[in-house]
């Protein structure tokens, strides 16, 4: 898997920096893909998500209370979902490092109770689990770190050439 992380300047603020992922060969982030696939059917929810992300970046930070930890992936895989309204249809996957760093991925519409039973949600969740593993390893190896405002260090990743170091 080859990808790079980019900082979402529109949502980032003094409480939290928000990032997303561009998969190699794509022109836009996973977050753009999520929006593009859902905005026509769920504009109001997309706007609520935008307002939530804006507050996370500029007002309240990526505090754990604003995220769902259970039922999304395996325990400890690092992937969470933005806490949604009871009537909400959309689920947006992300990776959170403390309250200051949030990496947004793709997601989809919740049509079934378990994400594993939905092709789109399963693809989005598994993609984020893989990205989380790679980023966490990069942090452990010191290739990616936090300077108090931003990620610093490596931002392009290719787990196919791990032996080239």
């Amino acid at each position: 898997m080859k990808f790079k992380i980019v900082k979402l300047s529109r949502f980032s603020g003094n409480k939290s920096s928000l990032y997303s992922v561009i998969i190699d060969g794509e022109q836009e982030t996973l977050f753009d893909t999520f929006i593009r696939n859902n905005v026509s059917e769920n504009l109001h929810e997309v706007e609520q998500i935008f307002a939530t992300l804006n507050s996370i970046g500029k007002k309240v930070g990526a505090n754990d209370i604003f995220f769902r930890k259970k039922k999304e992936g395996k325990a400890g895989d690092g992937v969470e979902a933005i806490y949604d309204y009871p009537s909400a249809k959309l689920r947006l996957y992300c990776i959170r490092y403390g309250s200051v760093t949030l990496v947004l991925g793709d997601g989809g519409e919740k049509k079934v109770r378990a994400w594993q039973d939905d092709e789109q949600l399963s693809k989005a969740a598994n993609e984020m689990i893989k990205i989380s593993q790679i980023l966490t390893q990069a942090i452990r190896d010191g290739d990616l770190s936090w300077d108090g405002n931003d990620f610093v260090g490596q931002f392009e990743f290719n787990d196919n050439d791990e032996d080239e170091d």
Binding site: K7, L8, D32, Q154
Partner: peptide
């Protein structure tokens, strides 16, 4: 894994801007 020590690039898109 190849190491690249560069500042994380800032990003936005016409889609994000239009909705925001």
């Amino acid at each position: 894994m190849m190491k690249t020590k560069t500042k994380i690039p800032e990003y936005t898109s016409p889609l994000i801007e239009q909705i925001y």
